[in-house]
């Protein structure tokens, strides 16, 4: 059995990336840590698209293009999130999500 020519291998790996991403998002106590976990989840999505693209899709260009779009969105998201983190850090002097409580009643 060839693992690298099997759709389920890639799906399981993408599932693993999603799992670790969700776990990290809850476990991390800093904004940057959460951002790192988000990148893992996005990467799992990209891997899924590429796997389906290789094994099932009628047009092999579509999955590649969609993965490219995911990368572009991830880059934009990282830039925006980093600048948000900097702005929050300047206002609250903390990188801890628990410390940002202006809207807490």
């Amino acid at each position: 059995m060839m693992f690298h020519a099997n759709l389920n291998t890639y799906l399981m790996l993408a599932l693993f990336l999603l799992m670790t991403g969700i776990y990290g998002m809850i476990r991390h106590k800093t904004f940057i840590g959460m951002l790192i976990s988000t990148e893992l989840v996005l990467n799992g999505a990209g891997l899924n698209f590429m796997a389906f693209n290789k094994f099932l899709a009628p047009d092999p260009a579509v999955g590649q293009i969609f993965t490219l779009f995911i990368m572009g969105i991830a880059a934009a998201e990282a830039a925006i999130a980093i600048s948000f983190i900097l702005a929050v850090y300047r206002k609250f002097s903390t990188g801890d999500p628990q410390g940002v409580t202006d809207l807490k009643g």
Partner: peptide, 30 residues
């Protein structure tokens, strides 16, 4: 998965750009 082009893009955008942005975020923000 049959796409050397996306391999290069992954290294360029994710490893090259996003990780560097994260490192800068850690450097400046914390």
């Amino acid at each position: 998965l049959g796409s050397p082009f996306l391999t290069l893009m992954q290294v360029l955008i994710y490893v090259g750009a996003i990780c560097v942005v994260l490192v800068f975020g850690i450097m400046v923000g914390y």
